[in-house]
Computed example of a mutant assay.
Amino acid sequence: MFMKHRRTVAVVAISLAICLTFTGCWDGRELNTISLVAGVGVDAAKGKSGITMTVQVGKTGQTNNGKEKESPTSKYLNYQKSGDTELGIIRELTHETSRRLFFGHNQFIIFGKQEAEKGIKPQLDFFLRDQETRLDVWLLTSDTTAGEILNTESDLSPIPAMDLAQLIANQKANSESVETDILDFTSKMESEGTSPVIGLVKIDRTTKKPKFLLSGMAAFKQDKMVGEMSEPETRGYLWTMNKIHSGTVDVKVGNSGSSLEILEGSGKISPKLDKNNHVSVSIKITAKLGIREMT
Rank of each mutant, 00 (worst) to 15 (best):
Ser191Phe: 06
Asp181Arg: 00
Thr186Gly: 13
Val201Thr: 08
Thr180Lys: 00
Ala219Glu: 13
Ala219Asn: 14
Ile198Val: 09
Met217Pro: 12
Met189Trp: 04
Lys188Leu: 13
Glu190Cys: 02
Ala218Pro: 06
Gly216Phe: 06
Thr186Gln: 12
Asp184Thr: 14
Phe212Ile: 15
Glu190Phe: 05
Val201Pro: 03
Phe185Pro: 08
Val201Trp: 04
Lys202Phe: 04
Asp184Lys: 12
Glu190Arg: 06
Gly193Ile: 03
Asp204Ala: 02
Ile182Tyr: 05
Glu179Tyr: 11
Val197Lys: 02
Ala219His: 14
Val201His: 05
Ser191Cys: 08
Lys211Gly: 07
Lys202Arg: 11
Glu192Val: 15
Arg205Ser: 09
Gly216Met: 08
Met217Ile: 13
Ile182Gly: 03
Pro196Gln: 00
Thr194Tyr: 08
Glu190Gly: 01
Ser191His: 09
Leu183Asn: 12
Met217Cys: 14
Leu200His: 12
Pro210Val: 03
Thr194Ala: 09
Met189Leu: 07
Glu179Arg: 12
Ile182Asn: 04
Leu214Ala: 12
Thr186Phe: 14
Leu183Gly: 11
Gly193Lys: 02
Gly193Ser: 03
Ala218Met: 08
Gly216Arg: 04
Gly216Ala: 08
Ala218Ile: 06
Pro210Ile: 03
Glu190Ala: 08
Thr206Met: 03
Thr186Ile: 15
Glu192Phe: 11
Asp184Trp: 09
Lys208Phe: 12
Gly199His: 04
Met189Pro: 00
Thr207Gln: 10
Lys211Thr: 10
Gly216Thr: 06
Gly193Met: 03
Ser187Gly: 15
Ile182Gln: 04
Leu214Ser: 14
Ser215Asn: 13
Lys188Gln: 13
Ile203Met: 04
Gly199Leu: 05
Ala218Cys: 11
Thr206Ile: 03
Ala218Leu: 07
Ser187Ala: 15
Lys209Arg: 13
Gly199Glu: 03
Glu179Phe: 09
Arg205Lys: 15
Thr206Leu: 03
Ser215Ile: 13
Ser191Asp: 08
Ala219Gly: 15
Phe212Arg: 09
